[in-house]
Every structure is written in C-alpha cells, then in structure tokens.
C-alpha cells in the first residue's frame, strides 16, 4: 500500500477548473507548466478530463451559474481527489463577498456535497507560481 501511496505522490494529474476567476490565477497555473517552473519534474501533469485527474485546481469564487457545474466536475473526479483552492477569491470570495451572484467560496460549495473533501488553500492574489509549487508539495506531504 505504501508503494501505491508513493506512486500517488510522484504522479499528480491536475485538472483546472475556473469558477469565476479574474484569470490571473489561471494564467499563473498555466505558467507552472512552462519552462521556468516545469512542474512535470514532479510528475504533475495537466490533463483534459476530470476523469483522469487526481487534483482539481479551482480558481475564483463560485457564482450562481458555475456552482452546479463545479459540483458536477467534482463528482466526476475519481477518488482519491484533492481540491486546491487558489487565490483569495477561491478561499474567501475575496473582493466579491456578498454579491448576489456569489454563492460562496470553494470550500463551502465542495463541503456541501462532500463533507470529507480535502481542500488545500493557496492564498495570494494571484499566488506566485513558487507558492503554488510549494503548496502542492506540502499538500502531498500532508496526505
């Protein structure tokens, strides 16, 4: 079993879910793949379907229209799964708190359908790529 756990840690496939972001976290996430940061070194791969993913990178707060879709994507991800909430808006809805279209931060929405869901918070507006890598590595240690 521990071998499998090690394998899990060495190979995280992520799927990027942009709820209602300002785009900034998103481009910084893509930045992770590019030559300067190259997270493929750690076996992290961006995949095209949540079916293949181990981790969801969620950016932005959740609005009324994207909430059911986020839940849908979350449920489509096979266990074990981790959610990374990126940026201030994802963590706390940030500047958009209280808006009519704001349905809450990512953790609240995920916990509505899956109280056990593991959520990793990466603060910043946007988080620096180094911070993101650090967060992923730390999260893997914690699992």
């Amino acid at each position: 079993m521990s071998l499998k756990m090690k394998a899990f840690k060495k190979s995280i496939w992520v799927y990027h879910v942009a709820c209602s972001p300002c785009n900034n976290c998103d481009i910084e996430i893509l930045d992770l793949l590019t030559p300067r940061f190259d997270v493929e070194r750690f076996g992290i791969l961006l995949v095209g379907s949540p079916r293949h993913a181990d981790a969801l990178l969620v950016t932005g707060m959740v609005n009324r229209l994207s909430k059911p879709r986020l839940i849908e994507v979350y449920l489509q991800t096979p266990r074990p799964r981790v959610v990374f909430a990126f940026g201030s808006c994802g963590i706390s809805t940030g500047i958009f708190a209280g808006g009519y279209n704001t349905e809450g931060p990512v953790d609240k929405v995920i916990h509505e359908v899956d109280p056990e869901g593991v959520i990793v918070y990466v603060p910043g507006c946007p988080p620096r790529p180094e911070a993101m890598i650090d967060a992923i590595v730390k999260a893997l240690k914690a699992i």
Partner: peptide, 18 residues
Amino acid sequence: VGVVDKSGNRSTLKEADL
C-alpha cells in the same frame, strides 16, 4: 457586472490581502 450586499450598504472589507 455585479451587485454588492443585501442592503445596498458597503460590503464588509474582507479582501484584506487584495
């Protein structure tokens, strides 16, 4: 486009880190 707060008052400034 967006609207803030139920009462139309200023929102509580949670966006400290912003």
